[in-house]
Design a protein around this nucleic acid. Structure first.
Length: 263
DNA sequence: ATGGTCGGTGTCCGA
């Protein structure tokens, strides 16, 4: 089974990218963030024709929005509100073998890394704390779970182009990295991508639109993640960032991340 | 050098 996550930054604008990505990745499950469309206008038909006949979507006008596109059927579909907002940042499904797949879009957090003066940053911190609390209450040995999405946090020093220069930049500040670490422990979750690609290697999944010279300057950050529970670790055989997708015409600013689970 | 560029919607907001 191949699971892919991608912050698409408008599913309607980039529907042809989904088709091309599906062919290229051979993903069985595609999780999208920032679909930016209400459920009634979601391009179901086009995606159905690509072979993703099972879909779980939760979108809103202009902002946020998550979707799970799948070749495999769902036993259950659920959504959850976080921080008492109907933000469309989380949707999850249970596959027929009991595996849960959670798709998240964690708040970006604005520019100023101070929760006192910046409500968006306060929201981001509260969101990650709430996630940790939720996982802690759902701990279950042997559970088969996958969590993917745009977490908007680059946790490792090698997840950013310059650890030192990004310490005060939202997405890599110690307070966020620590909270994300606590959330990871609460699963407990294994960073599937770093199981395959050594933590010592620089690895990014996002490059700002503002830097046109992105492939050369390579000032990226790894904001997009796929984590798994211990029960799935023996099945993990591959992980990669599809970096070239960032170079397609009219790209999203994020590259897709893909893992392979066998058995 | 404290800018820059996107997308969806609108004459800005969020990233």
């Amino acid at each position: 089974m191949r699971i892919l996550t991608w912050n698409i930054n408008s599913v309607r604008l980039r529907i042809d990218h989904v088709r091309r990505l599906a062919e290229r990745s051979d993903a069985d499950i595609i999780c999208l963030q920032e679909t930016k469309v209400v459920d009634e206008l979601f391009p179901h038909e086009a995606i159905h024709e690509m072979g993703y006949v099972h879909r779980a979507v939760r979108g809103m006008k202009s902002y946020n929005g998550v979707a799970i596109l799948s070749r495999l059927p769902f036993k259950e579909v659920a959504t959850k509100d976080w921080c008492r907002r109907k933000d469309c940042r989380h949707i999850y499904v249970t596959l027929e073998d009991g595996t849960e797949v959670h798709n998240f879009y964690i708040p970006a957090g604005g520019d100023e890394p101070d929760p006192e003066s910046n409500d968006k940053f306060a929201h981001k911190l509260a969101f990650i704390k709430s996630m940790a609390r939720w996982w802690r209450g759902r701990q279950e040995s042997g559970a088969r779970r996958v969590i993917v999405g745009d977490f908007n946090v680059a946790p490792l020093e090698t997840d950013v182009w310059s650890h030192k220069q990004l310490l005060k930049i939202v997405s890599h500040t110690p307070v966020e990295v620590d909270l994300l670490g606590a959330m990871q422990k609460s699963g407990p979750w294994i960073d599937a991508v770093r199981e395959i690609i050594p933590p010592a290697e620089q690895l990014y999944s996002w490059w700002s639109y503002r830097n046109k010279a992105w492939p050369g300057s390579d000032k990226g950050r790894r904001l997009d993640h796929i984590w798994i529970t211990e029960a799935l670790r023996p099945h993990l055989t591959g992980a990669e960032v599809l970096r070239d997708v960032r170079g397609w015409e009219k790209p999203s600013d994020h590259a897709p991340v893909l893992i392979t689970l066998n058995g």
